[in-house]
Simulated scan of single mutants.
Amino acid sequence: VVRPAVRTMAVPVRISDAATVRLLRPGDRVDVFAVADPAAGGRTRVIARGARVRNVPQPVGADPGASAHIGSTTNTDEGRSALAGGPSGGEDALVTLAVPPSTAARLAGASASARLAVTPW
């Protein structure tokens, strides 16, 4: 049985744990979770399953010839780094995921009201 190709979109997603993002490489698969504030009665829910990592940006000023591993973070006058202080003051990281359009909409909605986390496969 031949399945039709699934159309995907490249979606930048800010993940609340930069250390986890440092483990990712293009081609990896991840599940994405929205973690709402438990003090406000929030809960954790799965937003995407098996999303493919397309890109893990390097911090601003990183050597482009270096490994794809993300190093320490810095904010510079040129702009925010791919890893920067998040809303809670901790590090977060930007990663680009390939997901179907319906999942992209869920990711955008969830990121507006919750912190996002990933679990590598």
Rank of each mutant, 00 (worst) to 15 (best):
R49V: 12
R49Q: 12
R49K: 14
R49Y: 02
R49L: 11
R49I: 06
G50R: 13
G50I: 07
A51Y: 03
A51F: 05
A51S: 07
A51E: 03
R52D: 04
R52L: 11
R52Y: 00
R52W: 01
V53T: 04
R54W: 01
R54Y: 03
R54I: 11
N55V: 06
N55T: 10
N55M: 10
V56P: 05
V56W: 03
P57W: 03
P57G: 07
P57A: 06
Q58C: 01
P59A: 05
P59V: 08
P59S: 05
P59F: 00
V60W: 02
V60Q: 03
V60C: 02
V60I: 15
G61K: 02
G61V: 06
A62R: 09
A62P: 07
A62K: 06
D63T: 07
D63Y: 02
D63P: 08
P64F: 04
P64Q: 08
P64L: 13
P64H: 09
G65V: 02
G65H: 10
G65T: 12
S67V: 10
S67H: 11
A68Q: 12
A68S: 13
A68E: 09
H69E: 13
H69D: 11
H69C: 05
I70V: 15
I70F: 00
G71D: 05
S72V: 10
S72W: 06
T73L: 12
T73D: 05
T73Y: 10
T74R: 13
N75M: 11
N75S: 13
N75R: 14
T76I: 07
T76A: 13
T76Q: 07
T76R: 14
T76W: 05
D77K: 13
D77A: 15
E78L: 15
E78T: 14
E78R: 14
G79D: 06
R80S: 09
R80G: 08
S81C: 08
S81R: 01
S81E: 02
S81P: 06
A82F: 03
L83Q: 14
L83Y: 01
A84K: 07
A84G: 07
A84I: 00
G85S: 12
G85Q: 12
G85K: 14
G86C: 07
G86S: 14
P87T: 07
S88T: 12
G89W: 08
G89A: 13
G89M: 13
G89L: 12
G89C: 12
G89T: 10
G90A: 15
G90D: 13
E91K: 07
E91P: 14
E91G: 12
E91C: 06
E91I: 03
D92G: 13
A93C: 08
L94K: 05
V95M: 03
V95C: 02
V95Y: 00
T96P: 02
L97W: 01
L97A: 05
L97C: 07
L97D: 01
L97I: 07
A98N: 06
A98L: 15
A98T: 03
V99W: 00
V99F: 01
V99N: 00
V99M: 02
P100C: 03
P100G: 10
